[in-house]
Design a protein around this nucleic acid. Sequence first.
DNA 1: TATTAATATCGTAATATTGCAATATTACGA
DNA 2: TCGTAATATTGCAATATTACGATATTAATA
Lengths: 107, 107
Amino acid sequence: MGASKTDIYSPETTDIASLAKVFSHPARVAILQYISKQESCICNDIVEEIGLSQPTISQHLQVINNAGLLKGNFKGKSICYCLNVKRFQEFQQLFNQFLNNTTSNCC
Amino acid sequence: MGASKTDIYSPETTDIASLAKVFSHPARVAILQYISKQESCICNDIVEEIGLSQPTISQHLQVINNAGLLKGNFKGKSICYCLNVKRFQEFQQLFNQFLNNTTSNCC
DNA sequence: TATTAATATCGTAATATTGCAATATTACGA
DNA sequence: TCGTAATATTGCAATATTACGATATTAATA
């Protein structure tokens, strides 16, 4: 065993979990924080900023991208990565909805 | 390789990542959702509610507990699990702070 | 003090994630 | 079109996570 039993949960539950998974690795958090700090789009300069290899950064970018959180435009030879703000706000809303609904009725 | 390079990130970055990790598994999300729905504390009844074995549930509870998100009181033979609301709100605040600071400055 | 029910821990197998070197692809400019 | 810089993909090794059976622990009760 070892695989998650994904079929026993509601869609909402798995949604929240896979959403949180994007943010569950410090490299991905750092990438998003770096994107936020920049005045313009980011390219391969993240590789030097964060201390990971280019393939590893690329993999993490893909995870973030697969969640729909990035917009990529080609700028010369490099790809410009921006945040998909709309999608990001959707994420925040869904997550806060979960957090707000999680309460305690005793103790 | 395979281990996360935790030493290259800022404390804030790793904090957010480990916070998100708690919610990154559907079983843990489901457990928290179940706690919220109950009128009183929960005991071993979650085992039947979620389709996982007792040891597995116990492990997930420990992960949530290690994050400081639970309060456990003994009630007879069983342990009563409640949400540590204060800690939970701290989590929400930290996470929202990150989400709110994550913006796009181009495109 | 046994018995019993509830929960935790241990050991282990299966799978997932992380990370990088090597290589491929892509798109611009000479 | 050929070279070059930027990014993506592949393949693989190391580690982490998930899950459960077996067993230990804990605390109430007979």
